[in-house]
Simulated scan of single mutants.
Amino acid sequence: MITRLSITYGSQQVLSDLQKRYSDRPMILLDSSTSGEQLALLDVSGQESVFSSPVHYDIKLHRGTTDWQGFINFIYLANLSADDQKVFNSKANHFVTTEAMPEGMRSIYFMKDQKNRSNNIILSTWETTEDFAVWKHDPSFKPFNYFLTTQNNYHEASYHPVEPS
């Protein structure tokens, strides 16, 4: 299992060129918009980054496949108190080791930002956008609702993989 993911952002031309230059590495070009203007490149090799401005995530827990097709969602949580961090870690561990994976979920990663350890990331991959939306109302997601507040700098980013140009 890989222990780290890296991501960078840029234009389709720059990110596609990186993908071609390092074709021996598994990298997924991600698009968050229909206009193709909000792109990211996710390096899932677990190796040292080849990006000039990477963001690194250390994988703490993972379950599921390593298939990066379908719908991909990042939930970002920052500034958890020490007590909240313990609770979050417990809930994440319980989900990965005990809960049945929701319908349509391909994988889930609980990660920490390598530079800012107080930043927590829940990365999940899905068959469809609708499967993710259903999970957010499912009892298995309920333990995470507590953390989805502006106090924790909660925000989300959703993507679909795209073929390089």
Rank of each mutant, 00 (worst) to 15 (best):
S6N: 12
S90M: 10
V162E: 02
G70A: 06
Y57M: 07
E37H: 12
L123G: 08
H56T: 05
Q47I: 06
F74R: 00
T34M: 11
S53C: 04
E48V: 13
T150D: 13
F132R: 01
L39H: 04
H56V: 01
N73K: 15
Y76C: 07
F71S: 07
S45Y: 07
L123I: 06
Q13R: 13
N120E: 15
L15H: 10
N73V: 13
Q47D: 10
G104V: 01
I28A: 04
P164G: 08
F95D: 04
Y159C: 01
Y109I: 01
P143T: 01
E156G: 11
L18D: 03
D113H: 15
L61G: 03
D17K: 15
T125S: 10
E99M: 15
F74V: 03
M105E: 05
L15C: 11
N120I: 08
A92T: 09
A40D: 07
I7E: 09
V87F: 10
E103K: 13
V14P: 03
E156M: 12
I59R: 07
G70K: 06
H62E: 08
D113E: 10
I72R: 02
S16W: 02
S49Y: 03
K20R: 13
I122Y: 05
R25C: 06
L148E: 13
I59G: 02
H56W: 06
E127T: 14
S90H: 13
Q114T: 14
M27N: 05
S124Q: 04
P161G: 08
I72W: 01
L41R: 00
K91G: 03
H155Q: 12
L30E: 12
P26T: 15
I72T: 01
N145D: 09
Y9D: 08
R117T: 15
D43I: 09
K112F: 07
Y159I: 03
E103W: 02
T149C: 02
H137T: 15
F110P: 00
L148P: 05
V96K: 06
N153M: 05
S49C: 03
I59K: 02
L42E: 05
D83C: 04
L148I: 08
D17T: 14
M111I: 08
F88C: 05
S32C: 11
M101I: 03
V55K: 10
L15V: 09
A78R: 15
F144G: 02
Q38A: 14
T98V: 12
L80E: 04
Q69T: 14
D131W: 02
L42Q: 09
I108A: 05
I122W: 03
Y159E: 04
N153D: 05
T98N: 11
I72A: 11
N116T: 11
I122P: 00
A40V: 04
R63I: 03
S124W: 07
G64V: 10
I72K: 10
M111G: 06
I75L: 07
S158H: 14
I108W: 05
I72S: 09
S53Q: 11
N89Y: 03
H62A: 09
I2N: 12
P161F: 09
H137F: 09
L41W: 01
P54E: 06
S49H: 05
Q13L: 11
T128K: 01
